[in-house]
Design a protein around this nucleic acid. Structure first.
Length: 114
DNA sequence: GGTGTGACCAGCT
DNA sequence: AAGCTGGCCACAC
């Protein structure tokens, strides 16, 4: 099999592909890896992202509403917001205001341009 | 080793 | 229009 990576590892790889200053949703990643209904697992995978050797930009992954649902898992409730604002995102009330503009679809951005 | 549950999403009612 | 349910895979108890 060419793909020995488990579901979680695949999620981490996709997450690392997210360009700086861009964000995506759990569902978009789930769909990209072939399990459109496994968005939940993507979120859970992010929970264990800190166990990975390589850094995983989990702060660039939010829910479909652009809301920072997992901010509490960064060791600090403000950490995720700080990281996103640091990359140019406008976060307000735990929600990315310009989410629509910053949204990065893996299944689209990676396919187009070739 | 089975059951529960989790940073979600989309479809039904 | 809004609320509930199912589904997905891995990990803790």
């Amino acid at each position: 099999m060419v793909n020995d990576l488990s579901f979680f590892e695949t999620v981490y790889q996709v997450a690392r592909m997210i360009p700086e200053g861009r964000v995506t949703s759990y569902g978009a990643i789930a769909k990209f890896i072939g399990s459109p209904q496994a968005a939940r697992m993507v979120g859970y995978a992010m929970n264990g992202s800190h166990t990975q050797k390589e850094f995983v930009p989990a702060h660039r992954v939010v829910n479909r509403n652009g809301m920072l649902t997992g901010k509490h898992h960064f060791g600090g409730p403000e950490t995720m917001r700080e990281l996103l604002e640091s990359e140019g995102a406008i976060v307000e009330e735990n929600q990315i205001k310009n989410f629509k503009e910053l949204f990065w679809d893996p299944g689209k951005e990676l396919m187009e341009g070739y």
